[in-house]
Amino acid sequence: MKFLIIIPAHNEEKNLPFTLDSLQQQSFKDFTVVVVNDGSSDGTSGVIKRYTESDFRFETITLQKSSHQPGSKVVAAFKKGLETKNLADFDIVCKFDSDIILNENYLQKIADAFAENPDYGLVGGLLYLEKNGEWVYEGNSNKNHVRGPMKAYRKECFQEIGGLRETLGWDNIDAILLKNSGWKEVVIPELQVKLIKVKGADYTIKPADYYGRYFYFLGLNRFLTYIAAAKEASKAKSPSFLMQIINSYEKCRSQHLELKISKKEQKVINDERWNQFKKKWFKI
């Protein structure tokens, strides 16, 4: 197994060394890392240079500064890194964030999982955050979903689903599409990935607007969107939050904003969401 690891990085001077150090300390050594310096204005380039000059497995490209949009920016940077390599030379394609710390056996465990299970398409660990001096499970998603900061795809699966989409919701779109294609998404609980920075902390988009846009770009129809919006409003204990999410979603619809998924893929996503809803609430 040979890994291709793409790491988008924007102003990560303080966090990136932890990520790259944890990669250098891996027990599994057969990997190539491409760090995509996405318009950084701090000392990120200097950090990257230290690794590329001392370790042949580390490479980099530099992009011009672009606006920070949830989802689309990081995937666009990832794709630029991907373009520098020939996928035929690799077995596993990884999209890692620039502010995570991996166990020293992380890549080895991922490689073993793929080697022993030919139907595994996407594998990862669980995210942990530091609270009061201890690392605790993040808890933002179910424990069967591989989160965006540490995605590892079997190359054939990655190619079959058409790679990653430059859109909000990309890290759920991939999971639904690969499942529809017969691949499995697998979380290995003992692989604890330390997340140094809380995701979304530097986004300027408001929570209600985020959810409305997320449901739209995920391709959800009105019925499923309203159900999902009601769920979020219930968690927030705010009826007004429901209307704010719906207004954001309807605004996107009225503007006919471009989706990064086909009509066929949109149907697959809606069908999967509907099946999840029936299974959870009606035990069907």
Rank of each mutant, 00 (worst) to 15 (best):
Q26K: 00
I269A: 12
L82M: 15
L177E: 02
N103M: 14
I261A: 00
L126Y: 03
E190R: 08
V186N: 09
K131N: 15
K231F: 04
G133Y: 13
I196S: 01
K280D: 11
I196D: 01
S54G: 05
F277A: 07
K263S: 09
D55Q: 08
K143Q: 11
G139F: 10
D171M: 05
S234C: 11
E232V: 11
A88R: 07
K280Y: 15
R154G: 08
E130D: 11
Y216T: 13
Q24V: 09
S98D: 15
K184F: 12
A77R: 06
G162V: 13
K260S: 13
Y51T: 09
E104Y: 10
Q25T: 10
E258D: 07
K260D: 08
A236R: 11
V35S: 04
Q266Y: 00
G212I: 13
K184C: 06
K109H: 11
D112R: 10
K29R: 08
L259I: 06
L82S: 04
A201H: 10
N103L: 15
G46W: 05
E265I: 07
N140A: 08
I101C: 04
E13I: 01
K194S: 04
D42C: 10
G200A: 04
Y106G: 02
E232D: 04
P189Y: 14
I227P: 02
M243I: 03
S27E: 14
G200F: 07
E156D: 09
K143A: 06
K85I: 04
L177H: 01
N37W: 05
R147P: 08
E258Q: 05
E134L: 10
E272D: 11
K131M: 15
L129M: 13
L102K: 03
Q192L: 01
I161M: 06
N221Q: 03
N103E: 09
K184W: 15
N117R: 09
K80P: 04
K235F: 13
N15T: 15
K131P: 10
E138D: 07
L242E: 01
L16S: 02
I101G: 03
I100W: 00
H256K: 13
A201N: 07
S141H: 13
K85S: 03
G148W: 01
A88E: 14
Q244F: 12
K278I: 15
A230Q: 06
A115Y: 13
D171S: 05
N270T: 01
R165Y: 08
L107P: 02
W274A: 15
W135A: 05
G81P: 09
A236V: 10
D174L: 09
S248A: 15
S22V: 12
I48H: 01
S181F: 08
T19C: 07
G163N: 04
I269N: 14
T167H: 03
F223R: 11
N86T: 03
L242W: 10
R222P: 05
